[in-house]
Amino acid sequence: MQSEIELYRPQDLAEALTLLNQLGLDGKLLGGGTNIVSELRDGHHTGKSLIDLSRVKELRGINLQDGYIVIGGGTTITDLIDHPLICTHAGILLESARLFANPLVRNRATVAGNLTDASPAADTAPPLLALNAEVQLMSQSETRWLKLEDFITGVRKTLLQPGELMSAIRWPVPSDRSAGAYTKVGLRKADAISVLSVAVLLEIDATGMCKQAGIALGAVAPLPFRVHVAETLLIGKELKPELIAEASHLAAEACRPIDDIRGTAAYRKRITAVIVRRLLTKILEALK
């Protein structure tokens, strides 16, 4: 049954934060609406007050600031695809954006919406995790930055507090000696929910040693996550097939997947090893 809701349409960020503060626990943010609006039909948000952020221009934009790429929370997935800063400095995010749902949805869906929804299969999470992204949470009284890794805590669970919205996401501009790779495994070549997604970002120093590593997995655990054991293994070493094989194995071991209509846990685990190996190998070849 269609939900009964209150809908507020703030014109700017200050108004949005005031509303959010006033509404407290009943306040629910409406970003691109690509999840929430269809859920209204089934009565999921009855009694809630939705705050529509689509008019809040301050939340949209992609900039380079103090060595960080900073994007507004209301930035759409299409905005990412079209932006030169993303193309230049966040290839893995660009790739995930291109494979995000479909163009009609990408035109509405926002990065903050995708992250705060906190689906295990959230498409932008693995690349942003691998990029060491932080998220900015803003309330009327406070603004704080959290590591994205800490922000998502479980299936559809985050550290977003009542009265807060995700105003921005940022990550340090990767060094010139870094390279990334991304793969999404779905049951269809477009508009598919991930069976697995993997984003890898490595920085190699002048001696050929791995200086920094980000390996993030989606859809194989209750939340998208970084595989630190595999990253630690790589750091300070030269990327070689045996090392890559071991890191891939560790990544697969770190998965806690479930069986669902898209695939079994065993399958997800198995292909995690394959995809992580392939991505690391691809990076190794790209850096040669």
């Binding site: 809908l7 409406l30 691109g32 609406g33 509405r108």
Partner: peptide, 9 residues
């Protein structure tokens, strides 16, 4: 998709 937009929006 007009099904994912509220008319007020």
């Amino acid at each position: 998709n007009s099904c994912l937009v509220l008319a007020w929006q």
